[in-house]
C-alpha cells in the first residue's frame, strides 16, 4: 500500500501504521482462524483510532494555518489600504478646500492669510461683467492696520476705515466693496459708451477720475443732420452706478420746439434709470427702425 511505503520514509506515526498494516496482512492469511479474525478486527480498530488521531491533528493544523493567513491579510493589508484611502481622502479634501477658497472670489471677497494678518481681494463686476479686482493687506493687531493696498486714491478709503475698520471689519470690507463696485460700474459704462457708441458722440467724453461726473455731446442719429444734445451726469452717491443728477441740454437753438423738448426730457429719464450703454443701445435700435422705414 502506498501510504505504508510512504510512511516508512517518514517514520513516526506512519511507521507505526505500517507495522499495523503488516499485522493486518498477517492476520488475513489466517482468516479461517476465528481467533485470528478477532485479532484482525481489533487491529483494524486500533488503526482507525490512530488514523483518526492523525486526521484530527492535520485538520487542526490546516485550520490554524488558514487562520494565520486570514489574520495576516486582515491585519496588514487593510491597514495599508486604510492608510492609502486616508491619504486619498485628505488629498480630495485638500483639492475641495482649495477650490472653495478660489470660489470665494464670486462672493466679492476672497483672501489669503499672511504671516501678519490677511490679504483681502475685492472683486468688482457690473451686472454680468467681471471687472478689476483690488487688494487690501491688513495687519491683524490692535488696532487693525492697513499695510498695503491697491485701492485707487480717489476712493474715500480713509473715511470708510475711520468709520468702520476698528468696530466692524466685515462691514468695513462690504462698504469698500460697494464703493469699488459702483466705481467699476460707472467706469465700465463710460468705457462702453466710448468704445461701442463713438459714432453717436460729437467730441470726446469728459470724466473725472472717480467717474462720478460725466459730460458728453451726442446725436441720436449718427448720420443725421440733427443738432446735438449735451448731457451732464452726476453721481453724488459714490455707492451707485446710476446718476443722481442728470441735465440734458439742446445745442444750437435757444427755443426748443415741443417735439425736441419732449425728446430731451425722455433722454433725461433714460439716463436716470438705465446704464449709459443701454441707453445708447436703445438709440441705436430706434435708428435701425428709422433706417428700415426709409428703405421700405
Amino acid at each position: 500500500m502506498e501510504w505504508a511505503n510512504d510512511g516508512k520514509s517518514k517514520g513516526g506515526v506512519l511507521a507505526h501504521l505500517e507495522r499495523l498494516e503488516i499485522q493486518v496482512n498477517r492476520s488475513r492469511k489466517n482468516l479461517e482462524d476465528p481467533q485470528r479474525a478477532q485479532a484482525v478486527e481489533s487491529a483494524l480498530g486500533t488503526k482507525i483510532h490512530k488514523l483518526r488521531c492523525l486526521r484530527d491533528e492535520l485538520r487542526a493544523e490546516v485550520k490554524q494555518r488558514q487562520a494565520r493567513v486570514k489574520a495576516s491579510t486582515v491585519n496588514v493589508e487593510p491597514d495599508q489600504t486604510l492608510e492609502i484611502s486616508e491619504q486619498e481622502v485628505a488629498e480630495r479634501r485638500k483639492e475641495n478646500v482649495k477650490a472653495i477658497l478660489q470660489a470665494y472670489r464670486f462672493t466679492g471677497l476672497s483672501g489669503k492669510l499672511t504671516s501678519r494678518g490677511v490679504c483681502v481681494c475685492i472683486s468688482t463686476a457690473f451686472e454680468g461683467n467681471l471687472l478689476d479686482s483690488y487688494f487690501i493687506d491688513l495687519v491683524i493687531q490692535k488696532p487693525l492696520r492697513i499695510h498695503h493696498h491697491s485701492i485707487p486714491v480717489f476712493i474715500p478709503l480713509e473715511e470708510i476705515s475711520v468709520k468702520h475698520l476698528q468696530t466692524n471689519i466685515q462691514h468695513f470690507l462690504f462698504c469698500l466693496c460697494e464703493y469699488l463696485n459702483a466705481y467699476a460700474g460707472r467706469k465700465y459704462q463710460a468705457d462702453r459708451l466710448q468704445s461701442d457708441f463713438a459714432a453717436f458722440l460729437a467730441g470726446p467724453l469728459r470724466r473725472n477720475s472717480l467717474c462720478n461726473l460725466l459730460s458728453f455731446t451726442y446725436k441720436v442719429e449718427p448720420r443725421g443732420q440733427s443738432f446735438p444734445f449735451c448731457a451732464r451726469l452726476l453721481y453724488k452717491d459714490l455707492t451707485t452706478a446710476l446718476p443722481t443728477d442728470v441735465t440734458v441740454t439742446y445745442q444750437g437753438m435757444d427755443a426748443l420746439s415741443p417735439a425736441w423738448e419732449e425728446q430731451r426730457a425722455s433722454h433725461e429719464n433714460l439716463f436716470f434709470s438705465k446704464p449709459l450703454h443701454q441707453v445708447f443701445t436703445s438709440f441705436a435700435r430706434k435708428g435701425e427702425k428709422l433706417d428700415m422705414s426709409l428703405v421700405s
Binding site: 485628505a90 477658497l101 470665494y104 462672493t107 471677497l109 489669503k112 492669510l113 483681502v120
Partner: peptide, 26 residues
C-alpha cells in the same frame, strides 16, 4: 499634506468668519 490641509481649513474658516458667508460646496 496633512499640515497643508490644516492650513487651508483654517484659512477657509477665517474667510467665512471674515465675510460672514460660508461656502460649503463648490
Amino acid at each position: 499634506l496633512r499640515s497643508h490641509l490644516g492650513h487651508l481649513e483654517s484659512e477657509l474658516l477665517f474667510l467665512s468668519t471674515l465675510t460672514g458667508i460660508s461656502v460649503r460646496n463648490y
